[in-house]
Design a protein around this nucleic acid. Structure first.
Length: 856
RNA sequence: AGGGCCUUAGCUCAGUUGGUAGAGCGCCACCCUUACAAGGUGGAUGUCAUCGGUUCGACCCCGGUAGGCCCUACCA
């Protein structure tokens, strides 16, 4: 089994470039594993995304002049479901454009019945265990949402504000105690003023009271070493109901909690004249009133971190309310353990640290939301005895007193609560389904680092607690997509790119390949259009190469049993056997890279093989044979074409499923469909790969070098492409002589030659020289230049070459004259350098001699 | 404040057991050669941010510095 669960996108959302990346990675893995014979499952789904969806629908309704609160819960939910019905499939159709090969039959929505059952079961389980509790606490409150949000949903941003210094008169004296605050309006909720016990300035005031200005409330001055004497005035106003630190102080010193806010973020009835004002408004009024009455001492600019709601962007207010919390202490311990002992492996590894750090400082998780869209909390309150009944199925009476007067909690669960169960709830849990037995734990989770805490960590905790096993073996964390300037893509910046638009313009395959080619492990990637264009060209190149091949495969019939009935191996050319050999290497590489999830390496290996090895060299080499009429070699080359194309499309298929399937179905050698054909591995491809040879590969490289050397001389000497020239190839060993002889006609053709003589010889008088060395083989490429060009250019070329080689000689001889290098470096390294120095030296000699002859 | 990441050719980036630096795009020159001008052939370009250490040898390992990015964090 090999299973990937798709991170469920927001049901009302659109596919953005981040999804395209995320999905492509998963699709590559799934297609690769599917072709490799695994029992694969890629399970799609979508998320109700409580806050986001409710916000969208509310906004829509407001535009129609309707209001959620007026409509009531039931009517509103009907609207949201209608919305879900209408837009829920939008992202799925986009996924199809991308080519996601998910199992649509297993598609799951987070509010589906099965998932809902799972949610309730987990809720009850945790409640019974005491790991899920209700408590009155200070929580992060989002006024626009009128709901609590979790710590993670708060984003802290450095914000410019002011530090206000306020004077509080000390009761019974003429003294005024000056405190510093960034939120002067909260003075209405002050419970005390706190100073450091050792602070000489204030020691005499501890135990006395101050009178809060205007409202004239009397509050004590207390001492606690929590206070930083250096900050502000060293005197701290304490507002336990509206600040997390003050909350702790309030608990510690048993202070009263004065709540000054309403759920919508306006000041409440306890604030008198300020009632109904929003915090920002109230602040202005209060500061002005304090100033008018002489209580404002100073305002100085001050930058500090302010928490904002990540959904609405509003300033988060610490707010006292009754909420449900998941106790994380016990859950986090095993969850931390499975990562530190590598039962779950993070890729790249660096995220392990981030994860463990977070697990160490994790706080209880506020899971209730004052929303309507989501899983309603399965808790019922009894009007008669005030007991709470928590139950998997809707109860008809109070568990404690049997009263029928029970009402369900109005709130819903945090979206991430159901997401945390996703790896097993989608597979059928709490039923002991076949899918669950087969696919849990899943193989790999692919996601961005922005939701490691939101989602990954919580899935691990819940998986371990409910299933007793990790939810996945590996977590592949990919980078974020940025625009070409490195900024995060976002709607508000207007720099986000619609993947479907890119698909329309360049094709899904090109987009997918671009993403994969740039997907170096763990790094953010800048999306660049030129790059996308380049890979579109690559797809085009493959298409054209196929057209060429198919044209030349007309009349070709593939041998019945693969390669058994094939012609004798002698019919294969050097190029044929080189290509086959390289195909084997490619298969190993791509499989290995995919195994290690090194997607860019895999993509680049394919790119380079297809474009350079196959198109640039092999197809050019194959033309004379294909255009010719010699049956044996022609058939052999056709076979190589057909077999290689077959392997190319299979290898490329996970990256570019559309074009490869299209090509596949036109090939003379193929099965039913590329998507279900086998992924090529060298182990299972021995019959074919056996026709390749490393020796032929070496020979081919020598021939390529020779042709390149000839082209180089032509180019550097500005010899027109149409102008045919004479070339003397002077091999310095028998092996080279044989190799060149065997491939003479290709050299003539691709070098645009008149005459090509292959024999050891002295250099000619006025000629260009290119000495080649590969391993033990050495060849001098000699091109007579007399009458062709002015010799100045060739002299320049030689001088440049000589310079380069001399530099190498200097470095090499420096090393070889270093006694310590000789003494310490491994023998083979020293030997290699010695050999290299010898070659380079003799090459330089030849080049110098050639230069001399030119200037004669 | 703590932690992480990054700095390699004009641009975007590869470079995993330390042995004389690579790709794509762009650039220059030549080419409409019957698969492909979204193409072909050839070419130029790097004190691998900086300083120091380890090593025979460092882009790679260790430490300092500068610049950029991100995360975590209650400083009123």
């Amino acid at each position: 089994p090999y299973c990937v669960i798709l991170p469920p996108p927001n049901v009302t959302g659109f596919l953005h470039m981040g999804h395209a990346l995320d999905h492509t990675i998963q699709d590559v893995l799934i297609r690769w594993k599917r072709m490799s014979g695994f029992n694969t499952l890629w399970l799609p789904g979508s998320d109700h995304a409580g806050i986001a969806t409710q916000a969208v629908v509310e906004k829509d309704l407001r535009q129609q002049g309707q209001d959620r609160l007026e409509m009531g819960r039931e009517a509103f939910l009907k609207e949201v479901w209608a919305w879900k019905q209408k837009y829920g499939d939008r992202i799925y159709s986009q996924m199809k454009r991308l080519g996601d090969s998910v199992d649509w039959e297993k598609e799951t929505f987070t509010l589906d019945e099965g998932v809902s059952r799972a949610v309730r079961k987990v809720f009850v389980h945790l409640y019974k265990k005491g790991w899920l509790y209700q408590g009155e606490r200070l929580v992060n409150w989002s006024p626009p949402l009128q709901s609590a949000i979790s710590d993670l949903e708060v984003v802290h941003k450095e914000t410019k504000g002011n530090l206000y210094k306020l004077a509080y008169p000390v009761e019974g004296t003429d003294e005024r105690l000056v405190i510093a605050t960034t939120r002067p309006e909260t003075y209405l909720g002050d419970s005390c003023v706190c100073v450091h016990p050792e602070d000489e300035r204030y020691k005499h005031l501890v135990g006395k009271n101050v009178i809060l200005p205007i409202i004239n409330r009397k509050i004590p001055i207390i001492a606690d070493d929590y206070v930083d004497r250096e900050f502000g005035t060293g005197a701290l106003k304490v507002t336990p109901a509206h600040d997390f630190n003050d909350y702790n102080l309030g608990k510690k010193h048993n202070l009263p909690f004065h709540n000054i806010l309403n759920v919508d973020g306006t000041l409440n009835e306890s604030t008198g004249a300020y009632q109904g004002l929003k915090v920002q408004e109230a602040r202005k009024h209060i500061v002005k009133d304090l100033e008018d009455q002489g209580f404002l001492v100073e305002i100085e600019p001050h930058t500090h971190a302010v928490g904002y709601c990540d959904r609405t962007g509003a300033v988060v207010e610490p707010f006292l309310s009754k909420q449900w919390f998941v106790k994380t202490k016990e859950l986090s311990t095993p969850a931390r353990h499975v990562v530190s002992n590598e039962t779950i492996q993070f890729i790249p590894e660096q995220w392990t640290k981030t994860y463990i750090h977070w697990m160490n400082i994790i706080e209880d998780w506020c899971v209730s939301r004052q929303l309507w869209w989501g899983h309603r909390i399965p808790a019922w309150y009894c009007e008669d005895c005030e007991a709470i009944t928590v139950s998997e199925s809707d109860p008809s009476s109070c568990e404690s007193c049997g009263s029928k007067k029970i009402t369900q909690d109005n709130d819903v669960l945090d979206t991430w609560f159901s997401s945390a169960l996703w790896p097993f709830s989608t597979l059928g849990w709490p039923e002991d389904s076949e899918a669950l037995k087969t696919f849990y734990p899943t193989s790999v989770l692919v996601t961005g680092h922005d939701i490691i805490f939101f989602w990954v960590a919580r899935m691990i905790m819940m998986g371990l607690e409910m299933k007793g096993d990790v939810p996945f073996r590996k977590v592949y964390i990919h980078g974020l997509i940025r625009d070409s300037e490195g900024r995060k893509m976002s709607k508000s910046l207007g720099n986000s790119i619609d993947p479907v638009e890119m698909i329309d313009q360049y094709g899904a395959d090109a987009l997918r390949f671009t993403l994969m080619a740039q997907m170096a492990t763990g790094k953010d990637l800048k999306f660049s259009l030129p790059r996308l264009e380049g890979y579109r060209n690559f797809m085009n190149k493959l298409w054209n190469a196929t057209r060429f091949s198919l044209t030349n495969l007309e009349g070709f019939t593939a041998p019945k049993n693969g390669v058994d009935s094939v012609l004798p191996a002698t019919e294969f050319t050097t190029a044929d056997r080189w290509l086959i050999f390289k195909t084997g290497k490619l298969q190993d590489e791509v499989n290995q890279y995919l195994e290690e999830m090194r997607f860019s390496d895999a993509a680049n290996a394919l790119y380079s093989f297809i474009w350079h090895d196959f198109c640039d060299w092999y197809l050019e080499f194959s033309k004379p044979t294909l255009y010719g009429s010699v049956a044996g070699p022609k058939h052999a080359t056709q076979l190589v074409l057909a077999q290689t194309l077959n392997r190319i499309v299979r290898l490329l298929h996970p990256f570019a499923p559309f074009i490869t399937e299209e090509i596949y179905r036109r090939l003379p050698i193929r099965g039913d469909a590329c998507v279900i054909d086998a992924y090529p591995t060298s182990q299972e491809d021995q019959a074919w790969l056996g026709l390749g040879s490393e020796i032929a590969a070496f020979e081919m490289e020598l021939v390529k070098e020779t042709i390149t050397a000839i082209r180089n001389i032509r180019g550097e000497n500005s010899i027109k492409p149409g102008q045919k020239i004479d070339v003397y190839l002077s091999p310095k060993d028998d092996a080279s002589q044989k190799i060149l002889g065997k491939n003479r006609s290709e050299i003539v053709r691709l070098g645009q030659l008149n005459l090509c003589e292959i024999a050891p010889r002295e250099s000619l008088k006025k000629c260009a020289l290119a000495p080649i060395r590969m391993g033990d083989s050495q060849v001098d490429v000699i091109v007579p230049l007399e009458g062709l060009v002015d010799l100045e250019k060739e002299m320049q070329r030689l001088k440049k070459l000589i310079e380069k080689q001399e530099k190498d000689i200097k470095i090499l001889s420096g090393k070889l004259n270093n006694q310590r290098f000789l003494a310490n470096a491994p023998e083979d390294v020293v030997e290699a350098d010695r050999a290299l120095l010898a070659t380079v030296s003799s090459r330089v000699e030849d080049l110098r001699a050639s230069l001399m002859r030119l200037s004669d």
